[in-house]
Computed example of a mutant assay.
Amino acid sequence: MLKYLRLLLLPFNVIYASVVFVRNKFFDWGVLRSTSFDMPIICVGNLAVGGSGKTPTTEYLVRLLSGYKVAILSRGYGRKTKGFVLANDTSTAETIGDEPLQYYRKFKNVTVAVCEDRVAGIRKLKEDHEVILLDDAYQHRKVKAGFNILLFEFSKITSFQILMPAGNLRETFAGVKRAQVVLITKSPSEITDVAKTEISNKLQLKTQQDLAYARIGYQRLKHLYSGEEIDFSLNQEVFLLTGIANPEPLKQYLVSKKVKVYSFEYPDHHRFTEKEIEALVGSFQNHPAKEKIIVTTEKDGQRLLNDKLRDLLLNLPVYYLPIANEINAADKSRFDQKILDYVASAKRFDKIH
């Protein structure tokens, strides 16, 4: 059904493509103004909508840049607030969004803020920080980031893709030229030379642009409320709750763990209702298996922390599965060094001590 609906939207692609093309050209020509800042600004983004691994990539950068005073600035997708909001201990997914809440809860030494106007947000953060990471801001060209990391999913990059609204692309592949590094995420452990050649031919990168590959590194299960860590058990019954763009890699991982999966899938950033969680809990409690748990993603878990949903799940074995980007060994040193060199060269030594 969705396939045919998208076909009906094809005529609107001409309008969308024209707007995107003109807008990007206006920024390229200086008709529309991009604001630069005298400090390291790293942008993490993609050309397609959702699911490319921006959150674990941002977390990778936080760990890589642990020696600096870092701030993460996001739009705060799905929040009910407006303007600049600084994350604090009272923040929820509704006030700052699920991904910023995840960053705040995970990295206590990092400032997390949301603002739909990235220029205004950077101005509020720049005096007290050495590096600002822009989460999902590749198309936000009002800011001229000094370093752009562009993400593509391995399984999708070489497939035919078209612009929104009929397709998933926010802009054409011409946008690749703005990236300093292209990172192919969710890659297999072993990548054939044929696949690498096909991807290189698709991207047509310039000499100064780098290409790196990363795979998903799944961590130990962590209890959503207590923080207890466990491993999967053989033949365990798993009730999987997701509200992410692409749950397939996670489902494939669970299959590899030899568990039986009952999947409750919702759209990306879905705000779970009490009725939906009650349905999940009912299915879980009525299942006769002794070895059973509820599993969700770390991002989805942030939306299960409000009091009403927490009360429904509090006494149940509810775990989230953390993930991390693992840069391929052949690329890691070069990838890390290019980022560290940029930050060192752009750092304002006279501002932060």
Rank of each mutant, 00 (worst) to 15 (best):
K257G: 01
S155L: 08
T297P: 08
K126P: 00
Y342D: 05
V182K: 01
L61T: 09
D331N: 15
L7N: 09
N325I: 12
V318D: 03
R178A: 12
I42S: 01
V19S: 01
S52A: 13
V19D: 02
I132G: 09
R348P: 00
M39L: 15
T158P: 02
S36G: 11
G121Q: 11
F84L: 13
P100A: 04
K202Q: 10
G76M: 12
A17F: 08
F107Y: 15
L133I: 13
E116K: 13
A17M: 02
N46G: 00
S18V: 06
Y68H: 14
Y77S: 03
L32A: 10
I244N: 08
L2P: 00
F84A: 10
T207D: 15
K260Y: 13
P165A: 10
L312N: 04
R215V: 07
N306F: 11
R118S: 07
G121T: 12
A87Y: 07
I199Y: 02
K177M: 03
G175M: 04
P56H: 11
K257F: 05
G175T: 04
D336M: 07
L205S: 07
L250W: 04
Y319F: 15
D210Y: 10
D268A: 05
F349H: 09
T207W: 00
Y4A: 08
L2Q: 12
G67W: 03
K124Q: 14
A179H: 04
Y213D: 00
H129M: 08
A329K: 14
Y225R: 02
P188Q: 06
Y253Q: 13
E228G: 04
V44S: 01
T57L: 04
Y16V: 12
N88E: 08
R105Y: 07
K258F: 08
K69H: 12
P247V: 12
K3H: 10
L134M: 14
A324Y: 03
Y68E: 08
P322Y: 05
I15P: 00
T92M: 10
A48P: 00
N201W: 01
A145T: 02
S333Q: 14
Q209P: 04
F26T: 01
